[in-house]
Nucleic acid binder design. Structure first.
Lengths: 201, 201
DNA sequence: AAAATAGTCAAAAAGTAAAAAAGTAGAATG
DNA sequence: CATTCTACTTTTTTACTTTTTGACTATTTT
């Protein structure tokens, strides 16, 4: 890895630390620079504006997510185990990066740039494709009945995401969901997943 | 029906007309009074404050909903038909009363009073009980495998509601969801319902 | 080439005064 | 006596001004 990429990565890690704690909007470029003991212009040397840093951070998070997901999937063989594994990975990321509001739906002004939205769509599309592939294989091996796996994957992911967003909305309006709420979300998602799979057989 | 109740009802209907169009916050007590050709204090004679009028309106809407649901359920015998029927009724109400944001989750300041929330919980509880009863009967007649019907009903309703709230959130940010979006929501809910039922067998 | 100093400027936050809405007292009506 | 009104007070919003912050840059230094 070349020098400039190392620095970019260091900045991304520094930004992530702040973002995790205070969120994107409540973090200033000044603070990130101070944390890393560099000057503001140095920061702007590597990232032309805050959006591109945010983009870099989000891209990093998603690539970590997919990397982990792909690795974990190799350990699982059944449809059930694969989907559960996916739910748990997503849950860990949701928890860790909660303050970045990556699940969307928040009126967080920081995530509203056009190319960031496009990128989000791409990531969502990749997630969808991976899930569709899981269903596809289960279909080919006869574990589930023949269906349109893309459509099913979409409905599946949307139902799970819906549970999350509902729980957060109806939760006690703290800035962070409680351990109990998080547990509830995970349990509900796993239960729904179970029923959903059975419903496809 | 006694005279006072007739007047209360007339006021509630007047309020609903405004609420449906402009929402609760954008409707003033003055406007409701003017619509009905009465003075504001007259309104306050029947409803001590705006909250209690809103309460009355919401109570009316929910009682209409449950009345219709109970009636329609008598026409259906299978689990599938009953749940579909419920989804369609709820969808009609969602559409009609969209501007009141009854599905919750909106930061609409009008629905934040304590006893209104309690009332919402009660209504949700009744909905849950009705669904649980539907599952219970399907269980007793052997159409689905034995389960905790209350828990299943909760998961079922939450998944459906989750789909709605996700679609609305990710929708094109108009104040009103488009016909197409509404259709999508309904279709997804019906599909999920199908799979869910099959998953319980 | 990379980093720092010392700024600019737009946008957000905070504050404020006028307007509108909620809500009330007490008289009037029938 | 139940109901409705006129004429108010209190509370909340709105529209505006001032202040501050934070994104970003021109210029200089290492």
């Amino acid at each position: 890895m070349v020098e400039i990429d190392k620095k970019r990565d260091a900045i991304i890690y520094g930004a992530i630390k702040r973002f995790i704690h205070f969120g994107i909007n409540k973090t200033t470029m000044n603070e990130i620079a101070e944390d890393l003991s560099v000057s503001k212009p140095s920061l702007y040397y590597y990232f032309p504006d805050k959006s591109s840093l945010v983009f870099g951070v989000i891209d990093k998070i998603f690539s970590d997510y997919f990397e982990l997901a792909e690795k974990e999937l190799l350990n699982e063989v059944t449809l059930e185990a694969r989907l559960s594994s996916f739910i748990e990975i997503k849950h860990r990321f949701f928890q860790k990066y909660y303050m970045l509001h990556l699940s969307g739906g928040s009126p967080d002004s920081s995530l509203n740039s056009a190319d960031l939205k496009t990128h989000f769509m791409k990531m969502k599309g990749k997630d969808l494709k991976m899930h569709a592939a899981i269903f596809e294989e289960a279909m080919k091996t006869g574990h589930i009945a023949p269906t349109d796996t893309e459509k099913i994957a979409e409905l599946y992911l949307e139902s799970l995401a819906g549970i999350t967003s509902l729980c957060i909305m109806h939760g006690n309006k703290e800035l962070f969901p409680s351990k109990k709420e998080l547990k509830t979300i995970l349990d509900k998602q796993l239960s729904l997943s179970q029923i959903f799979i059975k419903g496809l057989k």
